[in-house]
């Protein structure tokens, strides 16, 4: 079995809604993990995080989150990131209601 390379994405919360966002391929912030820009090179990831963190009039609290490549694309490796992707489990609020 080949070892899966750790993949990172840049994530944060949107300034106005506080909604979870990821840095996307086009350099904008996306509300869909599927559109997030994956980094497999840690140095590139760190450099991109540095830059993204400057965008403080768009987002709050940028950090790198671990992902793996699953059948349906990017999947969080930790349950916290999974909940951030999905929204709360008691109501269909947050991402679940936004389709």
């Amino acid at each position: 079995m080949t070892r899966t390379t750790p993949i990172k994405v840049i994530t944060a919360n949107a300034l106005l809604e506080g909604d979870v966002v990821w840095l996307s391929h086009d350099g904008n912030w996306t509300r869909h993990l599927a559109d997030a820009l994956p980094f497999s090179d840690p140095e590139q990831a760190d450099a991109a995080l540095q830059q993204a963190s400057q965008r403080h009039d768009e987002v709050v609290g940028c950090y790198l989150a671990d992902m793996r490549l699953g059948a349906s694309g990017l999947e969080p490796t930790h349950f916290r990131e999974d909940f951030r992707r999905r929204g709360p489990s008691n109501y269909a609020h947050g991402k679940q209601s936004q389709g």
Binding site: G18, H93, K95
Partner: peptide
Amino acid sequence: GSLTEEEFRPLRLMNGLYLQLHAY
């Protein structure tokens, strides 16, 4: 954009505003 989050955070907390997982 004239206040950064670092500057704003203590001010919002003084007024009971937190940033949680999915929203404020």
